[in-house]
Computed example of a mutant assay.
Amino acid sequence: MHDLLAHGVGLLECARRLGWALNTVKRYARARNVQELLRPPRYGTCLVDPHRDVVRCRLTEQIPVTRVLAEIRERGYTGSANLLVRYINQGRADPERVSPSPRRLVSWIMTRPADLPEHTRRHLADLTANCPEMTTLSTRVREFAAILTQRRGQDLAAWISTTRADALPASTPTSTGRRKTGTPPSPA
């Protein structure tokens, strides 16, 4: 596809020639290499999830899977051995958790904590605990959501002042001194 683009063929014509959807062609055109096209798999909740920490711990101790299965069954696991093996083979029980994509991390921050699966809440807590700016950002996003959903407009000015005082990266006004609304900056 990049060869077609290099020869001056447009995106729509590339889609027609290759028999691909236009959005797929656009995504491939934006990618500089194959790694940019790879997306981490999105797994739903699983019967093994409540036992993930035990599975991880036993795997790092190099305990055989059959013994791990017996132990988590004693703790209430009702799934099959095949499900546990597939879970492990997918890397979902790896002790070193893969960092989520920026898009997924934003979706976790934007979701009410009660609506996130327990393992996702723990992963998000681990990620934000390692970065003070992320902890502050996550807190401010949740506060803003509460102001909006609870219709507490009177609290918005205080929230804005607090957020500005946090001086989070990329949250300061642009170097031109104007805000995006086009209003002039307040006198300092």
Rank of each mutant, 00 (worst) to 15 (best):
A6H: 09
G8L: 08
G10Q: 13
G10D: 15
E13A: 13
C14Y: 08
R16A: 07
G19Q: 00
W20N: 11
W20F: 12
V25S: 05
K26C: 10
R27G: 12
Y28A: 12
A29L: 01
R30N: 15
R30Q: 15
L37N: 02
L38I: 10
L38Q: 12
P41L: 02
P41I: 01
R42H: 13
Y43C: 00
G44K: 06
L47R: 00
D49E: 01
D49R: 01
P50T: 00
R52Q: 12
R56G: 07
T60V: 15
V65E: 00
T66Q: 14
T66G: 10
R67I: 09
R67K: 15
V68D: 01
L69I: 01
E71R: 15
E71K: 14
I72E: 00
I72L: 01
R75C: 02
Y77P: 15
G79K: 03
A81E: 13
N82Y: 03
L83G: 08
I88P: 02
G91V: 14
A93I: 03
R97I: 03
V98H: 14
P100D: 09
P100M: 05
S101I: 06
S101R: 12
S101E: 15
R103Y: 11
R103G: 15
R104M: 15
L105V: 11
L105M: 11
L105E: 13
V106S: 13
S107R: 07
I109E: 06
M110W: 13
T111A: 09
R112Y: 06
P113A: 01
P113E: 08
A114C: 10
D115C: 00
E118N: 04
T120H: 07
H123A: 12
L124A: 03
D126F: 06
A129M: 14
N130S: 14
M134D: 08
T136A: 15
S138W: 08
A146T: 10
A146P: 06
L148K: 08
T149S: 04
T149C: 03
Q150V: 05
R152S: 02
A157G: 05
W159F: 02
I160K: 05
S161Q: 08
P169W: 01
S171C: 15
P173V: 11
P173A: 10
T174V: 02
T174E: 07
G177P: 03
K180M: 04
T181N: 14
S186P: 05
P187M: 00
A188G: 05
